[in-house]
Design a protein around this nucleic acid. Structure first.
Length: 226
DNA sequence: CCCTGATTCGC
DNA sequence: GCGAATCAGG
């Protein structure tokens, strides 16, 4: 398998969306987890909460006695390439802008890649994009802050990608690439890409400080449950 | 053990 | 550029 433009786009979207390399590799198919990680690094996107980090170089060495013959020749110490990395702030949470002074902010104009995008990946590798990338209507003054949420399977429609238009709800249901993956398909809430019901899921009123739970990641269909 | 991402290096 | 092998932490 070669890295076509679409596959790279899928990789980027899922990587930024918070999917693990294994999930991405499984979704793309034909590539290993390492391939995904390697490609991600080559693309320049990296970091993201990785379990293996936050440690300093230590002088402990290993003694791989029973291991298979290592291909590496640890003759010369290799300088870590991350030394020249630009200092990056703490990993941006899924949705946490600053202004909390009671003013309302719209979830739509997401300009950076740090915030979750409502993106789903179709079986062919094409992408469905969310409010941030498409329409930017801010119809009524939102009562509070609106934060993205993750979908959950409740309804059982069968709107395929071909049935999508700007009139029907684009809420993804199921996992991309699987046979039962479809979209909600109900009439949209005017000004939004989703129906009223899913707007209620996609944009949740900000609860008072304290009674707030962290918004879940994975905007593209939820975690895999295989 | 499993998982994760990071890194290296032969191809 | 690609990705298996490997490393390293949870």
């Amino acid at each position: 398998m070669s890295w076509t433009d679409e596959r790279i786009a899928t990789l980027k979207k899922m990587w930024e969306g918070g999917a693990t390399a294994s999930q991405i590799a499984d979704e793309l198919g034909g590539v290993s987890r390492n391939a995904v990680i390697g490609k991600a690094h080559r693309l320049g996107l990296k970091s993201r909460p990785s379990p293996v980090k936050a440690n300093e170089p230590k002088k402990a060495d290993k003694a791989p006695a029973a291991k298979a013959a290592p291909k590496k020749a640890p003759a010369a110490p290799r300088p870590a390439a991350k030394a020249a990395d630009a200092p990056k702030p703490a990993p941006a949470p899924r949705a946490a802008p600053a202004g909390q002074g009671g003013n309302a902010s719209q979830p739509l104009p997401h300009t950076g890649t740090d915030l979750p995008k409502i993106v789903s990946v179709g079986p062919g590798g094409f992408l469905r994009q969310g409010p941030g990338d498409q329409q930017a209507p801010i119809p009524p003054a939102p009562p509070r802050r609106l934060v993205p949420a993750k979908p959950s399977p409740e309804i059982a429609d069968k709107t395929s990608l071909l049935d999508l238009s700007d009139k029907v709800c684009r809420w993804p249901m199921g996992h991309p690439g699987e046979p039962d993956f479809h979209f909600c398909g109900e009439p949209v809430n005017p000004g939004f890409p989703y129906c009223v019901e899913h707007c209620g899921r996609a944009y949740q009123a900000q609860l008072p400080r304290g009674a707030r739970r962290p918004p879940p990641p994975l905007p593209f269909g939820g975690p895999r449950v295989r």
